[in-house]
Nucleic acid binder design. Structure first.
Length: 599
RNA sequence: GGGGCUGUAGCUCAGCCGGAUAGAGCGACGGUUUCCUAAACCGUAGGUCGUGGGUUCGAGUCCCGCCAGCCCCGCCA
């Protein structure tokens, strides 16, 4: 209903100027316009929208709020366009103006959506729009992906999907940890225990690498000789020694294959551009910070001290961009990345917005480097840099998620488990209902439901809070879960199979019951929800919307006959089914979740 | 010590720019199947929004203090 609420807003603004010209003039002088404070109503019985401005104006006008509202309403009723759009406004409570869209306009909206593949969601002008970088997932080479990466991957992918659907060019960037001191250790260890792995592909898998990495770390902490060799190895790598580079490439390739398996299962597409990509830009970061006068050498390290952020002992906190041994660190890389992403092509991405989807523990780090980048004037005017933080994944005991033996949970095991549980649920139900289905059907449904459940459980929660992981809850057949939404979709598919294709070219849709009108109104809210998520980057708002849509649909399905209704009612109801189906499908797609015809 | 995030029903969580009587789901209790997949629907019970102040016509939401939990705080990412 974006277009309806936008025109309502215009009518209200016009009415405000007419009713209170002096206030409008004063606002204009200050470079503002009066905001009518138009919002969706808090309860359906108040209509579709409410304008709250009268309550605000009452004070400066020294008039009772209800008479302010009355003056606005009188102007509205002199406006023919408004009268065509809306039922007579009602003044309620202390001075709210309640507005109800005329049903004929709602029906028109439904009609236009039945013919619109975008379901009424506007698209930005791609030609004029600069790319948005979504930096997400970002596992480390030679380590297993864990549940933290899962959250980043699922949330980042959904945000990217929503921005893409809105028409923005999106760069999905996998900022993998593919550089740094850990490679010195790892290569040194492999040289001594598995030299073949450094020269021949496919000799070791990621599981082995993780073991070698753990061993290397232990030796690094205990053996001075090992430490020294590792440091030399890092230097060799950074100088571009061909043998070291070759070994490094093999390690990356091995990890990459393993990551790709997870991404394929999750249907996530992402472009790898790891930390190593920025190696050649690091030196310039330090030089330019020095030239701009921000750089301070402290205890041998080159730092930028942050304004207004103190650490221990009350001193300002530094961002270290070059260590006392001359090496660069992650802050340098992140700064180089910010520059590159904002720089115009071909020397950069020419982005207008950077979105980092990482755990909330990195909030301080991002605050720091964003401040440095801004002070160094590397962030263009009107550009945005945003950290999109998310909370920890906890087990049902409220502690950080671990396996029973206390190990980190591997992603592939977690996905396997979800699918396995979905499968046994399905088999039990088939058994109870006496249904028989092909193995292929069972596998497909279990996989889709299992993956959907994992994704939806993560996305449906406000990301900033910690997230309590529970297979039982995410796979529950009722409540705000993926299976519930998928089932609503399946019900519609069932109706369509029974010969329920509506004629959407007819002019005579008519909706009678309150269940139909609730569904109509909910369907028309999609555009508002999508544009809100685009701005706030909170996919859980989309989940809430889809859950409410499913609830309203299930109520309608339960209480209103569709296939058995008379012709005109039947066609109208089938049209609502079709639009609900399309809306659910699109919404779920934007969450990275695919739908099923039967389950 | 400094900073960040969190605190809402027994449990898991929503709550948009400050708006009308704070909402779901689970769990509990009680109903609904000659009818499009009952993986559904309907109903009942359940709240000092951590706490004390402040701002406001109006505060779960904004500001300040306090309490509790989690996370971060110089050369790891």
């Amino acid at each position: 209903m974006l277009n309806l609420s936008n025109s309502l807003k215009k009518h209200l603004e016009k009415a405000l100027i007419k009713a209170f010209p002096e206030i409008a003039k004063a606002a204009q002088m200050a470079g503002l316009s009066i905001d009518p404070e138009l919002v969706p109503t808090s309860r359906p019985e108040f209509g579709d929208f409410q304008a709250n401005i009268a309550l605000k104006l009452a004070k400066s006008l020294k008039t009772a709020p209800r008479s302010v509202a009355q003056a606005i309403v009188e102007e509205l009723q002199n406006d023919d366009d408004f009268i065509r759009l809306c039922e007579p406004p009602e003044i309620a409570g202390p001075g709210f103006i309640n507005l109800t869209i005329k049903t004929i306009n709602l029906v028109e909206e439904i009609k236009s959506r039945l013919h619109d593949p975008r379901l009424g969601v506007p698209s930005v002008n791609k030609a004029k729009s600069a790319p948005i970088v979504v930096d997400f997932s970002s596992p480390n080479i030679a380590k297993e992906m864990h549940v933290g990466h899962l959250r980043s991957t699922i949330i980042g992918d959904s945000i990217a999907r929503i921005l893409e659907f809105r028409g923005h060019p999106v760069l999905r960037i996998n900022h993998v940890g593919d550089w740094g001191t850990q490679f010195g250790m790892l290569i040194t260890q492999l040289k001594s225990v598995a030299p073949k792995a450094l020269t021949t592909p496919e000799v070791i898998d990621l599981g082995d690498l993780v073991t070698f990495y753990r061993q290397a770390k232990e030796r690094f902490d205990q053996e001075p000789a090992f430490q020294a060799t590792s440091r030399e190895e890092v230097v060799k790598l950074q100088r571009g020694d061909p043998l070291s580079i070759k070994a490094w490439e093999l390690l990356c390739e091995q990890s990459r294959k393993e990551f790709q398996k997870i991404y394929s299962r999750l249907d996530v597409h992402i472009t790898e551009r790891g930390e190593s990509f920025y190696n050649s830009y690091l030196e310039q970061v330090v030089i330019d910070l020095e030239n701009s006068g921000l750089l301070v050498i402290d205890e041998g390290a080159k730092c930028v001290f942050l304004e207004g952020i103190t650490g221990k002992n009350g001193r300002l906190l530094p961002v270290i961009v070059q260590k006392s041994d001359g090496g660069f660190n992650y802050a340098t890389t992140d700064l180089a990345a910010i520059r590159y992403r904002f720089n115009a092509a071909p020397k950069g991405d020419g982005a207008c917005r950077l979105i980092y989807v990482t755990d909330a523990g990195q909030a301080n780090h991002f605050t720091g480097i964003f401040q440095v980048a801004k002070r160094a004037k590397w962030v263009p005017h009107n550009a945005r840099v945003e950290h999109v933080p998310f909370g920890l994944v906890q087990g049902e005991d409220g502690k950080k998620l671990k396996t029973r033996s206390g190990e980190t949970v591997r992603l592939r095991d977690l996905l396997d488990e979800a699918i396995k549980r979905a499968e046994s649920d399905l088999r039990r139900r088939l058994n109870e209902e006496g249904r028989t289905e092909e193995e292929r059907f069972i596998k497909n449904v279990s996989t889709t439901v299992g993956i959907a459940a994992v994704k939806y459980a993560d996305l449906s929660q406000n990301r900033v809070t910690n997230y309590q992981f529970s297979f039982d809850r995410m796979l529950a057949l009722q409540g705000n879960t993926a299976p519930y939404l998928l089932y609503a979709f399946v019900r519609i598919a069932g109706i369509v199979r029974k010969g329920g294709t509506p004629d959407i070219h007819t002019d005579t849709f008519s909706f009678e019951t309150s269940q139909e009108w609730s569904l109509v109104r909910q369907l028309l809210k999609l555009d508002e929800v999508i544009t809100e998520v685009e701005e706030e980057l909170l996919p859980n708002r989309l989940c809430t919307y889809l859950f409410e849509l499913s609830q309203i649909f299930n109520r309608f399905y339960d209480q209103v006959p569709i296939l058995k209704a008379n012709n005109q009612a039947k066609n109208s109801r089938l049209a609502l089914c079709l639009l609900t189906s399309n809306t659910l499908k699109l919404g779920l797609r934007l969450l990275g979740i695919s739908t099923l015809e039967r389950m």
